[in-house]
């Protein structure tokens, strides 16, 4: 199915948000994940199944302050 990930159109097999991101090397416990403009909070939200034309973004939270 067709998705937009990090601003780019991409093809992906049916999966959950967590599976999709982990397959791309995203450390999901250290990231803020946005699905269709909404931030997914909590582990349950990351098990949401992706749908055609979803827009997914992941922002890595790194240390320093």
């Amino acid at each position: 199915m067709k998705l937009t990930y990090q601003g780019k159109e991409t093809e992906a097999a049916p999966s959950t948000v967590a599976e999709f991101l982990q397959a791309r090397g995203v450390a999901i416990t250290e990231s803020v994940v946005e699905l269709n403009g909404e931030i997914l909070t909590g582990d349950d939200a990351l098990s949401t199944a992706l749908a055609e034309n979803d827009v997914v973004n992941a922002f890595h939270i790194v240390a320093g302050g």
């Binding site: 803020v32 946005e34 909404e38 890595h60 790194v62």
Partner: peptide
């Protein structure tokens, strides 16, 4: 701007754990 109410500042990459100093 991420989601409705989060504003993220930074480069999301340059990490103090990677040997870079703050």
């Amino acid at each position: 701007r991420v989601g409705r109410n989060l504003i993220l500042v930074g480069d999301q990459t340059r990490d103090v754990r990677g040997g870079l100093a703050p």
